[in-house]
Design a protein around this nucleic acid. Sequence first.
DNA 1: CAATCGTCCTGCGGGC
DNA 2: TGCCCGCAGGACGATT
Length: 269
Amino acid sequence: MPELPEVETIRRQLQANIVGQTIKSVQVLYSKVVQGIGVKKFEHDLAGKKIKEIGRRGKLILIRLAGDKTLVVHLKMTGRLLLVKKGTAPEKHTGVVFVFKSGKQLFYDDMRRFGFVKIMDEAKLKLGIDFFDQSMGLKKFKELVGSRSGSQIKPLLMDQSLIAGIGNIYAQEACFAAKVNPLRKVSSLSDKELGGLYKGLSVVMKSAIKAGGSSVDAGYRDAFSRQGRFSSFLKVYGRAGKACLRCKAKLVKKSIGGRGTVFCGKCQK
DNA sequence: CAATCGTCCTGCGGGC
DNA sequence: TGCCCGCAGGACGATT
């Protein structure tokens, strides 16, 4: 499932490849993927628009168009934005085809159909601060997390309205890095542990961006259909039942806030 | 205020 | 071999 590092990887690839291109036509193949307006209007409104730049906020890809509108894309779990050559035919899971005047195409694919595309004003996004935003830092992180002292830490890290970008994989990895049990309440965390979580998130997600993200099973692919190379560095995600890489104890899996969570019951206090 | 549960959707793996 | 069941999961709304 694409989280901040995976979405950032795609953002950089789109930034390098479609900025300056003009959309010639758009075909929506799966109507429910378009939010807010009708399919015909969506296709019509995008035709002729030039791509100004590609932004990102949390897990959202922001395709900024000439004028002041933005094409917002959420990949949810299995969504993909694929740059394909002129003439490439859509596949089974292709929901939207964007054709540029150059002939290049951008496909929005989504096997499980949870994601969406939407034309909107960015100011209307209801999202917390992106984890890698300029205004984020240790102080801000402690302030934000501290404001929700009654919550369990792991689901809180995934709350997009507080901090945007962290999903199920990196929240688990950060708790492991900080030796914090994901079930802990924020109010029970020491200043040092909060610092460890911030550092853990920062290190893990920066490394993941360098490795082009994490691909688990048939999940994430970048804009060129390639897998991320960070998966092999994941220490707890997907390793339930296996030995903890720090203390050798058997990693356990629990459902926390309805999400599968793997951790070490021995060294994550 | 916080936690849980159902919902959307499809592929896949386990069990028999 | 093949079928059925249930799980996976981001975000949101409703409920406890």
